[in-house]
Design a protein around this nucleic acid. Structure first.
Length: 217
DNA sequence: AACTGATCCAACCGCCTTAAG
DNA sequence: CCTTAAGGCGGTTGGATCAGT
């Protein structure tokens, strides 16, 4: 039997909500059967995560959200789920849609203003390389942190977490656009789509905590 | 009121990663 | 190891709605 596609009906939403209430999120392969939905597992998951989930925030992005999004986009590239993860209540789909609308508008403006095809902006996606945090490295970092108040960006020895002693201001500096490129180790070999997960770990570090704390303020 | 182009956003698709057997 | 199934992600599409004429 063909699975249903297209827009979800209220009845389907109701069935999915009931399922999640009863069994919780996850085990998406079982959802169609147990919820009584004639939808594929992916469709169910997508509907829940992007639309039905109660924590989802509706409406326009606030200025601070946009600001944070721009900074994160510079840092992470088109990794919408990671970006969305730092914007409470926003989904990767929201972020993605926002960004493509924004991009479209900018391109259109370019056509109107310049009356010639806009140059494709050269974006350098900077992906941090995960590094093993060895004991010797840690000692080295501590030595550096105590010997200098400022971060030596050009010759940074750390890629995942700054010395704590330098405080939050250092992270703020790091998120300034001109400094971003110098901070992360650029790795052309890892620009391929297959090298996504190797970078993931690095971001579950102090940076994220800082960003979250900053957005809470 | 009717038409048209622009915009928004929910949904689909294809690919990749991961875990289990 | 290899295979397979499931989860997850980013890119893209297309229908609905809005705005302008």
């Amino acid at each position: 039997m063909e699975v249903r596609k297209g827009s979800w009906t209220k009845e389907e939403d109701h069935l999915l909500r009931n399922y999640i209430e009863k069994y919780g999120e996850g085990r998406w392969h079982k959802v169609p059967l147990l919820a009584g939905l004639n939808r594929c597992r992916k469709s169910c998951r997508m509907r829940w995560l992007n639309y039905l989930k109660p924590t989802i925030k509706r409406g326009d992005f606030a200025d601070d959200e946009v600001d944070l999004m721009i900074r994160l986009r510079k840092l992470l590239g088109n990794r919408w789920s990671l970006i969305a993860g730092r914007l409470p209540g926003r989904t990767s789909n929201d972020v993605k849609n926002f960004w493509s609308a924004r991009r479209r508008r900018n391109i259109d403006c370019g056509i109107i203003k310049n009356s010639k095809p806009p140059e494709r902006a050269k974006t350098t996606v900077i992906r941090p390389r995960p590094r093993t945090f060895t004991k010797s490295l840690h000692q080295n970092l501590n030595a550096k942190a105590t010997s200098s108040k400022s971060i030596e960006l050009g010759n940074s020895s750390w890629s995942t977490s700054p010395p704590v002693e330098n405080g939050i201001d250092d992270w703020k500096i790091l998120l300034d656009e001109d400094l971003l490129r110098n901070f992360w180790v650029e790795d052309p070999a890892s620009m391929s789509s297959t090298d996504v997960n190797s970078t993931e770990q690095g971001f579950e570090m102090d940076l994220w905590q800082f960003l979250q704390e900053e957005t809470m303020q």
